[in-house]
Design a protein around this nucleic acid. Structure first.
Lengths: 162, 162
DNA sequence: CGCTTTTAGTTGCGGATGCAACAAAAATCT
DNA sequence: AGATTTTTGTTGCATCCGCAACTAAAAGCG
C-alpha cells in the first residue's frame, strides 16, 4: 500500500476537503431554510427508491446511506414516525428487518429534490465545465469504489501492518 | 444563477459526495485507532500553524476551520484545557479573543500529521494519477473559492431571489 | 442434537455541533 | 455625547451520530 504523498495530491486533498464542507453546509442551509429534511433523510429515502421494490435490509441501507447501524436505527425510527417508510420483518430470516419506502416517502423525495438539485447546481456544478465534471466523476469513482466494502471496520486491517 | 444540472454534473456530484464520506470516515477511524484527536482538532491547530505568529481571532478561526462560532468556542475550550492553545484577549478590541498555538499544540500537530498523511495517501491519493490530482485541485479550487465568504448566512441571499 | 460463533438490529451513553438568545464592546448615526 | 446598530464571543438547548454492550436469530461445528 502506497503511503507517500506527492505535493500535488496533497493540494488536491485540501481543495477536496474544503470545497466539500462548504458545499455541503450551503446545501444543508438551503434545505433547512426551505423547511425540508436534511440530506441524511434524503440519502436513506433515495437509496430505498433505487432498490428493487423500494425496500432494503437495515444493514444494507446503513452501508448505502453512509451511516452506522445505530445511526440508521434512529433515523429509520424518525422516518417511520413520519410514515415515510415502514419496517417489515423478513419471513426467511427472523433477525432481519426491511425498510420499505411508502408513497409519502416518494412524495417527500420529490419535494426535497428540486432544492437539493438547485444546491448542487449553484454551489458545485456551476463552477465546472462538462469536461471537468466528467474527469471528476471518473477519478472519484475509483476512490469511492476502493472503499466500497469498508464499513465499520475501516482502517483496522491496514493499521496493524504499520 | 445557473440552476440547470446536466447528467454528467450530477454523476460527478454523486461520486464526490460518496467518496468524500467514505474517505473521511476511514481517516477518522485511523486517527481514532491511533489514539489521536479528530480532524476538527487538526483543522483548528493547522489553521493557527499557518497564520502569522500562530494566532487568529476566534471568528476567523471558525471560518477557516469550517465551524460555527459556537462550535469553535467549545472546541477551543477543549484545546485550551489540553494546553494546545491559549486564549489571549485583544488589547485593541475588547470583544476579540485570539487563539494562540502553543509549543504543545505544534507537537500535537506533528503527532497527528503522519497518520493523517497516511490516510490521505491510502484512501485518496493512491487512486489518482498526477494528472488527475492536478485537475481535481484546479476544478475544486474554483468551488472552494466561490464559497469562501459563505459563513453563517449560507444560501439566504440567493434563496430569496427564487 | 446441543454448543459456539457470527450476524442483524437495538439501546445506553457520550461527544460533537448548529441555532437562537444573550452580554459586552465597538461602530455608526444624529 | 447619547442612542442605535453591528460585531464578537459565549451559553442553553436540541439534534445527530458513533461506539460498545446487549438480545435474538441464524450458521457452523462437535
Amino acid at each position: 500500500m502506497k503511503t507517500s504523498l506527492p505535493a500535488g495530491h496533497l493540494d488536491a486533498w485540501r481543495k477536496y476537503y474544503t470545497s466539500f464542507w462548504r458545499v455541503f453546509a450551503a446545501i444543508e442551509a438551503d434545505l433547512s431554510a426551505a423547511g425540508l429534511p436534511s440530506l441524511s433523510w434524503y440519502d436513506v429515502l433515495y437509496e430505498l427508491y433505487l432498490s428493487p421494490d423500494h425496500h432494503l435490509r437495515m444493514c444494507e441501507l446503513a452501508r448505502s446511506a453512509l451511516l452506522s447501524r445505530s445511526g440508521l436505527t434512529r433515523l429509520v425510527d424518525k422516518l417511520e414516525k413520519e410514515k415515510l417508510i415502514e419496517r417489515k420483518s423478513c419471513p426467511s430470516d427472523g433477525r432481519v428487518y426491511h425498510a420499505q419506502l411508502t408513497a409519502k416517502g416518494v412524495e417527500t423525495l420529490r419535494k426535497i429534490w428540486p432544492v437539493y438539485r438547485a444546491g448542487i447546481a449553484k454551489y458545485f456544478a456551476s463552477q465546472l465545465t462538462e469536461a471537468e465534471a466528467r474527469d471528476i466523476e471518473r477519478s472519484l469513482a475509483k476512490i469511492a469504489a476502493s472503499l466500497e466494502s469498508v464499513a465499520e471496520t475501516a482502517g483496522a486491517a491496514e493499521c496493524e501492518k504499520d
